[in-house]
């Protein structure tokens, strides 16, 4: 649908709409956040030969170094790489629109359904797993990290500071990162 027959078979930049539709389709069918979505994006852009594998790994590393959901960052950086600013805008809209529409629809249905016991039970059950999933995520980061005494102390102190921070969490987060960066390499 995106490959119009052209006179030369060069790797020209894909158009706005083909980038938009690709990310829109990925975003609409992928539930479960970044770690599910990123491999799907990778396979799709490689199959369309818009991007080489090594280039995608570079983009993925960049996506992790800036704030924001990994799925969004991987998509916008990929869009920029394959089609410049139009690709960036197309990828952003493609990723954002399907969940936006789905969530408004779902929220309306839920407020209309009110407190039906089956729905109530489902929401309670779906929410109950949140601390477990977050703990599992932290567990995996902790298990894979290379620990030093400094890193352990910094992490415990940072966690305590953030728990106490309340609505100041964002500035405290950056404070923790700056302090941890300064102490990195000390006491190895």
């Amino acid at each position: 649908m995106s490959d119009f027959p052209t006179d030369a078979d060069t790797r020209r930049a894909p158009g706005f709409l083909s980038v938009f539709w690709l990310f829109c389709a990925i975003s609409a069918v992928t539930i479960g956040g970044g770690y599910v979505m990123v491999p799907v994006i990778q396979r799709a852009v490689e199959r369309k030969r818009w991007l080489k594998e090594a280039d995608f790994y570079d983009l993925f590393a960049m996506a992790q170094s800036i704030p924001g959901p990994l799925a969004l960052n991987s998509a916008t950086l990929t869009g920029w790489k394959i089609a410049g600013l139009p690709g960036f805008i197309a990828a952003t809209l493609g990723i954002l629109l399907p969940p936006f529409a789905a969530i408004i629809l779902l929220a309306s249905i839920i407020s209309a359904a009110g407190d039906h016991p089956a729905l109530r039970g489902f929401l309670d059950g779906a929410f109950a797993v949140v601390p477990g999933l977050v703990a599992a995520l932290a567990f995996n980061v902790i298990r894979k990290r290379q620990w030093t005494v400094t890193r352990a102390v910094m992490t415990l102190a940072g966690a305590a500071a953030l728990i106490l921070a309340g609505t100041w969490a964002v500035p405290v987060f950056f404070g923790v990162v700056v302090v941890a960066r300064l102490f990195e390499g000390v006491g190895r």
Binding site: P131, V141, A159, A161, I163, A169, V176, A180, R181, E184
Partner: peptide, 19 residues
Amino acid sequence: KLTEALKTGTLGLLAMTLW
């Protein structure tokens, strides 16, 4: 070094979410 510092901050945020 920045990546490690961000990991420290991220673990703090996860602790906050858990809390």
